[in-house]
Amino acid sequence: MKGHTFEPGRLIAGATAVAVAVGYGLDAAGTWDPHPLVLLPALLAGLVLAALVTALTHAARRNRRRAHQSDQPAPPPLGDLPMASLREGHEALRATREHRQEAPGRGRGAAPGTGGGKTPGGDGSGDGVRPTGRPGP
């Protein structure tokens, strides 16, 4: 299993939440009597600190990643791509598809050799002759 990256902002947020929970727990047990306006602002301050640390961590990692990427060679410019051969292949494929669609007697989904017509002959003429040359049923 791949290890997770260290997130200091989450550590601070978790520690703040645990500290506030312990404060309220001690207050409920009667051991400590904090001022009512101490724990909630402490939670708010801890979450703001966690957000700042997270933003700084993200910026540092982004800068490090960009510096690492600048060491690698740049990809080839677009002018080096074989666009003419790609266009020729695309046009040939398109011409093949158009030729198939324009083929006489071939409907959509027709099996090879059936002609795909609606008449018993399959060629759409209605004469009852099959494309093989044999008379229809």
Score class of each variant (00 low, 15 high):
39 L>W: 13
85 S>F: 10
41 P>D: 07
105 G>K: 02
81 L>D: 10
75 P>S: 01
80 D>A: 08
44 L>P: 02
34 P>I: 04
50 A>I: 01
59 A>N: 01
56 L>M: 11
26 L>Y: 07
113 G>Y: 09
75 P>H: 01
119 T>I: 03
45 A>H: 03
96 T>Q: 13
61 R>T: 01
100 R>A: 15
106 R>W: 10
80 D>I: 01
84 A>I: 13
49 L>Q: 08
99 H>C: 01
105 G>Q: 04
42 A>E: 08
96 T>E: 13
72 Q>Y: 09
59 A>L: 04
113 G>S: 02
67 A>G: 09
108 R>W: 15
53 V>G: 00
117 G>C: 04
72 Q>S: 09
106 R>H: 08
28 A>W: 14
106 R>T: 11
48 V>Y: 07
61 R>I: 00
71 D>C: 06
26 L>D: 12
38 V>F: 14
50 A>S: 11
28 A>S: 09
36 P>Q: 04
58 H>S: 02
89 G>T: 06
84 A>K: 14
134 R>T: 11
45 A>F: 10
36 P>W: 13
42 A>L: 14
123 D>E: 08
53 V>S: 00
126 G>D: 04
34 P>A: 04
117 G>P: 06
58 H>M: 01
88 E>L: 10
120 P>A: 11
68 H>C: 02
51 A>N: 03
106 R>A: 12
47 L>Q: 12
88 E>Q: 10
88 E>M: 09
70 S>K: 14
26 L>W: 07
62 R>T: 13
52 L>Q: 02
34 P>M: 05
30 G>E: 07
31 T>S: 12
88 E>C: 06
121 G>Y: 05
49 L>T: 06
79 G>K: 11
113 G>Q: 06
65 R>S: 06
108 R>L: 15
85 S>I: 11
80 D>Q: 12
55 A>M: 03
59 A>S: 03
